[in-house]
Amino acid sequence: MTPMVTTSTMRWWHSRICCYFLTFVVVAALGLMSVAIGTRTVPWGDIWAGLSGNLETIGQAAVAKRIPRTLLAAIAGAALGLSGAIMQGVTRNPLADPGILGVNMGAALAVVIGVAWFGMAGAQSYVWAAVVGAGATAIFVYAIGSLGRSGATPLKLALAGAATSVAFSSLILAIVLPRNDIAGGIRTWQIGGVGGATFESIQLVWPFLLIGFFISLLSARKLNALALGDELATGMGENVALARAMAALGAILLCGATTAVCGPIGFVGLVVPHVCRLLVGVDHRWLLPFSALTGAGLLLMADIVGRIIARPSELDVGIVTAFVGAPVFIWIVRRQRVREL
């Protein structure tokens, strides 16, 4: 029996390592495509020269401008994919997602209030406002979804998040419409995109993202325990409330920082964890880093598609991910059978 177990274990490790390696290769290829594809077609010679820092030709200058955009798309996609996996693990809700639970819209509302009512202008202020807004919204949605005898069921959380997202979106419109001085910029930012990326904006959110990634990945074992149920997790020595709070904190930091620099981008955190579970299983020690890697690839691909289908203009990634995510959301609801949620 021992050789059979050993062989099975080796195959298990081999299949997951292959998934990681192949996904990494795909993400790297998408990164190169993101640098090469745009309004102007850039030859490979200019791409390598531009990556080296040369700015002698228009093509090399275009590459230099696309590098921060590519980097931001990869980082934002990784953050959203990882935060989605965390939220689904914390709530044990297959429909959990920063967009569906209203967390992204709460972060956006906090930024809009800061800009419109308090004259907030610095990008650093945007990040703090977005993180606070995301945290407050997460607490609010969980509190509303916990009302009633059955507690925070997946369906109640999804409904509470959807209602909160719609309400916050209406509030944003009510705040922005009378303010012609900020309306154009806010509406563009609210779609969700990476077109205006700069190294300076990435540096501002990098500390929040780094802390969020660190906390989230450290929560993997605790999320495995929570997946067994609160009673079993408590019997295993876990502090259930603390475990949920720490994992949620990591997801909130990731969502808030990403929303501050990119705007609210939906459905990445919903689609990515479900795909990743099919490939590497439900163990969060494998699932969380793989969700980050796959999320980076998805947002890079969405950004590339948005540039190709709308040439010489482009579609923001928030629009592209909505086209991809909405059918997946419907499929998940039908697969899970709403009455059982």
Rank of each mutant, 00 (worst) to 15 (best):
T2K: 05
S8Q: 14
W13A: 13
W13F: 15
S15V: 13
F21E: 07
V25Q: 10
L30C: 06
S34A: 12
V42P: 03
L51H: 10
S52G: 15
N54M: 12
N54W: 07
G59K: 10
G59S: 06
V63E: 08
A64C: 07
K65P: 02
R66G: 08
I67A: 14
P68V: 00
L72C: 08
A76T: 12
Q88I: 14
G89E: 01
V90A: 01
R92T: 04
P98Y: 03
L101P: 03
N104L: 08
G106D: 01
A110C: 09
V115A: 00
V115H: 02
A116S: 05
Q124V: 05
Q124W: 05
S125K: 07
S125G: 09
Y126M: 09
A134F: 11
A138W: 04
Y142D: 03
Y142E: 08
I144D: 01
S146C: 03
L147G: 05
T153G: 09
A158R: 02
A162H: 01
T164V: 15
T164E: 04
V166E: 00
A167Q: 00
F168C: 07
L171S: 06
A174R: 13
D181E: 15
I186Q: 13
Q190I: 11
I191L: 11
G192K: 04
G192A: 11
L204K: 14
W206A: 15
P207R: 04
F208H: 08
F213I: 11
R221K: 14
L226M: 12
G229A: 11
E238C: 15
L242Y: 11
A243C: 07
G250V: 03
V268R: 09
P273Y: 13
P273G: 06
V275N: 06
V275D: 02
V275Y: 02
V275L: 15
R277C: 01
R277P: 12
L278R: 13
G281T: 12
R285Q: 07
L287Y: 12
P289H: 02
F290N: 01
S291D: 02
S291P: 08
A296V: 00
L300F: 07
L300K: 03
V305E: 03
G306L: 07
A310V: 07
R311E: 06
S313G: 11
L315D: 03
L315H: 00
D316V: 10
V317R: 06
G325D: 02
G325P: 01
P327D: 05
I332V: 14
R337E: 02
